[in-house]
Design a protein around this nucleic acid. Sequence first.
DNA 1: CCTACCGATCGGTAGG
DNA 2: CCTACCGATCGGTAGG
Lengths: 201, 201
Amino acid sequence: MTSPFSFARFSNVSARKQEILEIAAQLFATKGYRGTSIRDIGNRAGVLGGSLYHHIKSKNALFVELHNAALDAAAERIEQAVAKVHNPAARLEAACVTFVEIQVDVDSLTFPMMSDFREVPDDVRKELIARRDRFENFFRRLVDELALPPEIDRSVYRNALLAQLNSVPNWYRPGRLSAAEIGRQIALIFLPDEAARTRPA
Amino acid sequence: MTSPFSFARFSNVSARKQEILEIAAQLFATKGYRGTSIRDIGNRAGVLGGSLYHHIKSKNALFVELHNAALDAAAERIEQAVAKVHNPAARLEAACVTFVEIQVDVDSLTFPMMSDFREVPDDVRKELIARRDRFENFFRRLVDELALPPEIDRSVYRNALLAQLNSVPNWYRPGRLSAAEIGRQIALIFLPDEAARTRPA
DNA sequence: CCTACCGATCGGTAGG
DNA sequence: CCTACCGATCGGTAGG
């Protein structure tokens, strides 16, 4: 067993490169972009830093590749979870639950990647932001489906919801509540009518 | 005019050191902790990096000092804004509005400081987290005052609210809505009953 | 506040 | 995948 990860996220890639990508993802998640050196990644992979350049083009390119793979995997999981549901509020709740499950899953590449854009070089940041659009557009549609009080600004609402979901790893500690329960709690905050509906009269 | 900042936040400190602190705060806010070098700060202050060590003890100590001053100033402003109000929901709304105003005010030391704890060394992170307690306890009381649906977990609610407010600088772009309007929108999300109360029947 | 420097670390490369 | 190295940059210091 060379890695705690067990998914096949990178199909056109050698087994060795998959190992390296997974190690790098874990380190970026824990230490951030600047806090993870090429030599750190090499250490965990059992080689010297310079040897990694047979598999990667640059640290920047490695980070972009990981980030895009993580975003795509998360988008796919969330879209699948939502597709089974038809009530707009329940669709948003399903998205929240799945999003939080991904965020707190240590076996998921996805959890690190969304934040700390200030740490990456300017040109890398531009690529990452552009790629986030699939994600944001999907949530834009989810939010537009909802019946909300007219004084709610849907743009603020959507940004707030995404920021909320992204922030979960910053404060969540495993134990008392499951990831699904956290996701449902976030949905309760953003969907008060749902709360009212399930509240004992 | 040596600096765009015009508040006297550090009282027992020479004018020159105040300049340096303000420059450092701006740079940390924009570039993050690791992205800001001692030489960067020196450049903006018109001296070489090494010369700063007459005024500061270390980069770590500088960051901790700034972070604590920013937290205390923000806590004070928010507590003052809330003290004038008595309805629990209105108190929370006042806290949200003031918090967002601080966060997006470029003339405020405060806006940078709350996040990217992963970037700082481990021992620094411990100090910062300890100091955050005043802030969190104040919001704990604000939240405990509220009438909320019984199925809402108040711990998740409080963490979600703080994460929300902290995330504003990550997505807010000046123009369409003012800081106060953003703060009110966030309060609307977290206080659905208030939204209902002000909604035309 | 500068000169002049230290030891460490960084991303990356040539050549095998 | 390693050896051996590059140029750059980092936080920090001694001595004036």
